[in-house]
Design a protein around this nucleic acid. Structure first.
Length: 762
DNA sequence: GAGCACTGC
């Protein structure tokens, strides 16, 4: 390493003003080493928030809205719900506390249950996807914000709740932002309808609270003190052209000067640069003089296998320094104790969305001030610390104050669909705290219109019956549509599998060092029909060997993600059966108009038994039937998928009313052509056509696109394909492709393709 | 012949 001892790299830094911040959150995210000798009541009383308890209770009793700024470590998230409960505020209903992340909801509930000395799931519980640990006794309920949003579709006034606490509001996730509007509307409507009032408490860590306060009817802002540890800030004297080099130099400067027990956390942008820097650090560390102690370098990013992620929590051997190179996963999701130094490159990789091209771009960009403070706060969580910013103080001053809320930089199709499902009357003018651009809203409505999810009454956008069904799936609208279309093609079982595979992190494991082995193993499953069907083959093989771990290793399949596919699939399947109940009764005439398939009662019967395990009691079934009848009564005739009337004539009791009103879930067996046809119908907006020169053009925007080298179709030249997504890196790449016929695209959306398609070549 | 930050229903 080019290191001149006369000019220590740290001389490049100059101190900024000291910065005080509390950054310790009890019960949050991590297995804490609890001081067993301190009783839990004493621990509660030692929290900074305890001093303000009675004052807080008085305020919260009177206010309908409050914004609470509690620096992390104040204990607000664990204590406020308990204070409310103990003071009898909102006892008629449930206090909901929302979190952006599952782990946070679960660990907070666990901690609060412990503090209340009750079993988790009784007084205190939590609800996240796939897990509901609540009961009729539950009064304090921690949940993901996405989960509350789902609940709101069935109950827009949130009548089960008397208080909703929106925690971590400063993170501004799409779900939190939509929830802002939903709770505000629920609050107003409940007042208008003389129902039990809804109290809304917004909790945030940042000082930028005007927006929250303004939005919630100029609600008062309550400030909570936290535990403070001083942090010394350093900025570079000169702007750095190469932040990686600057990070490297800083790491070794600190390594030479600081005691070995002081760990370093470096914030970087992504896997590749983290692994590269880790290698360089290890190389250099090997050749340092003996006066320098050893160093252990640990990479940290989300796609790392869990076992390797856990390494960041293990203390380094005595006399050895721990250096963690991390993405922004260490900003919020993973909390590491013992960090004394933070090095902030000031850069982050983030997604941006262009509504005109429909393109999402993942790009390295500068962090916001708020993000820089968040990173800084990670030093000195237990004690004072230092932060080295690899940029000048001027550069810091020029950063944008807050990260642009996610809702202003993502595809809004699912958001708009959800808002419509919530019964929002005027979606285009929904009361967002930070409005997305009108183009982004229009583009979302257009997309939903093409999928048949929305219609228009004058200026108003309305939900179609199909759209209503689509909204009940936790999926992007086009995947929900594909599932709902699948009975038309008798391939629901396959489509459910494929969509589930696409909803989880990749199930394919690609270690660069074993590339050849990996390709050879994958060849067994590869089909010229494309990536979707290749994935389906892998899933079928996985099932055939009963999820055998050894098989997974041999075939480079991520068994954990594969099990998740199973969970998602079961959930989607259940939703299929439920939305099927909403199917209106239609005449055989209508059925033939929609090209209904022949009845295959036997296979359907098997599918049904598999799913509910014969546990549906007659009473439950008949209740469902009554509900279904009401649905039938209310819905109009605009049916979208055929419904098999012949099943009604079946005498077998196990053909309960539930089943008879369900979607028919069939398997197409080896007839994979029908799966591709179904995918063509669902993904027709993402279609591309081979050009005479061998390149591809997207049919939607006419932009040039290319097959991503990771696709099984990379070396093939199919005339027409549909794809899951476009990824703009060195080129505009299509990812996850499926071979289709041009005819299928035309039959999927004749109007649309009349404009887009060139005459078909033979 | 490329490479994808992080969540969540």
């Amino acid at each position: 390493m080019p290191h001149n001892p006369d000019h220590p790299p740290a001389k490049k830094f100059k101190p900024g003003s000291p910065f005080f911040r509390i950054d310790k959150k009890p019960g949050m995210l991590l297995p804490r080493k609890e001081n067993a000798s301190v009783p839990i009541d004493v621990q509660r009383k030692n929290l900074p928030i305890y001093q303000a308890k009675s004052q807080l209770i008085n305020q919260l009793r009177q206010l309908h809205n409050a914004v609470l700024i509690g620096e992390t470590g104040s204990g607000k998230t664990t204590q406020i719900p308990q204070y409310l409960y103990e003071a009898g505020i909102g006892r008629q209903g449930i206090v909901a506390v929302t979190q952006p992340r599952r782990v946070a909801a679960i660990s907070l509930a666990t901690r609060v249950a412990e503090e209340k000395r009750t079993q988790l799931g009784k007084l205190v519980g939590y609800t996240v996807r796939f897990e509901d640990v609540t009961s009729s006794e539950t009064k304090l309920k921690f949940m993901t914000d996405g989960m509350l949003l789902r609940e709101a579709i069935g109950d827009p006034l949130l009548l089960r709740y008397t208080v909703v606490v929106l925690d971590e509001a400063h993170e501004r996730t799409v779900h939190t932002d939509v929830l802002f509007g939903v709770v505000k509307a629920a609050q107003r409507k409940r007042r208008e309808q003389n129902k039990v009032p809804l109290k809304v408490i917004v909790m945030s860590a940042t000082m930028d609270v005007d927006l929250f306060s303004q939005y919630f009817n100029k609600s008062p802002v309550l400030y909570l003190e936290g535990r403070q540890h001083p942090i010394q800030m350093y900025y570079t004297k000169q702007p750095q052209s190469d932040y990686l080099q600057a990070a490297l130099v800083s790491v070794f400067q600190i390594h030479q000067e600081a005691p070995a027990s002081h760990d370093i956390l470096v914030f970087m942008t992504g896997q590749e640069e983290i692994e590269a820097l880790a290698r360089t650090c290890r190389d250099i560390a090997k050749h340092l003089p003996d006066s320098c102690g050893p160093m252990t370098v640990i990479p940290l990013y989300a796609s790392l296998p869990p076992a390797q992620q856990l390494r960041v929590f293990q203390p380094a051997p005595k006399g050895c320094r721990k250096v963690i190179l991390s993405t922004n996963i260490a900003e919020t999701s993973i909390t590491i104790s013992g960090i004394k130094y933070v090095i902030d490159t000031g850069m982050v990789k983030a997604k941006r969305f262009n509504p005109e091209s429909g393109l999402e771009v993942l790009a390295v960009q500068r962090v916001s001030k708020a993000q820089a403070w968040q990173r800084a706060g990670r030093a000195g969580r237990e004690d004072s610390g230092s932060v080295y910013r690899l940029y000048t103080e001027d550069e810091f001053d020029n950063l944008i104050p807050m990260t642009v809320p996610e809702i202003q930089r993502c595809n809004l199709a699912s958001v708009v669909l959800q808002l419509l499902a919530l019964g929002i009357p005027d979606v285009m003018n929904f009361d967002f705290m930070s409005k997305p651009s009108p183009e982004a809203m229009r583009s979302a409505v257009e997309q939903l219109d093409l999928l048949g999810a929305v219609g228009r009454k004058g200026e108003q956008v309305t939900l179609t019956p199909l759209g209503k069904k689509m909204a009940s799936f936790p999926l992007e609208p086009r995947y929900a549509k594909t599932i709902l279309l699948s009975p038309d093609f008798q391939c629901s079982e396959e489509v459910l599998t494929i969509v589930s595979l696409l909803s989880v992190d990749t199930v394919l494991y690609n270690p660069p060092a074993r590339r050849e082995e990996c390709l050879a193993a994958r060849k067994k499953f590869t089909t010229s029909e494309g990536d979707h069907l290749t994935l389906l083959n892998i899933y079928r093989a996985f099932k055939k060997v009963n999820a055998n771990k050894e098989w997974c290793r041999e075939n480079f399949v991520n068994s954990r993600n594969m099990s998740m596919v199973g969970e998602v699939r079961a959930q989607l399947r259940e939703i299929c059966l439920k939305v099927g109940e909403q199917v209106p009764n239609i005449t055989s005439n209508q059925v033939s108009q929609h090209g209904c398939s022949s009845a295959r009662g036997e296979s359907a019967h098997c599918n049904f038994s598999k799913c509910v395990g014969g546990n549906i009691s007659p009473l439950r079934s008949s209740n469902r039937l009554m509900n279904s009848n009401m649905e039938i009564f209310h819905l109009n005739k605009s049916m979208i998928f055929p419904y098999d009337l012949s099943l009604f004539t079946h005498n077998d009791l196990s053909f309960s009313p539930l089943y008879q009103l369900s979607m028919k879930l069939e398997s197409c067996g080896s007839d994979t052509g029908s799966v591709r046809r179904c995918l063509a119908h669902g993904l027709f907006m993402n279609a591309a056509e081979l050009q005479p020169d061998g390149s591809y053009t997207a049919l939607d925007t006419h932009q040039p696109v290319a097959i991503h080298p990771s696709s099984v179709l990379f070396q093939a030249k199919p005339a027409y394909v549909v794809f899951n997504e476009l990824l703009h890196t060195s080129k505009c790449y299509m990812r996850d492709l499926c071979l289709v016929d041009a005819d299928w695209l035309v039959e999927a959306a004749p109007e649309y393709f009349r404009r887009k398609l060139r005459p078909t070549k033979s």
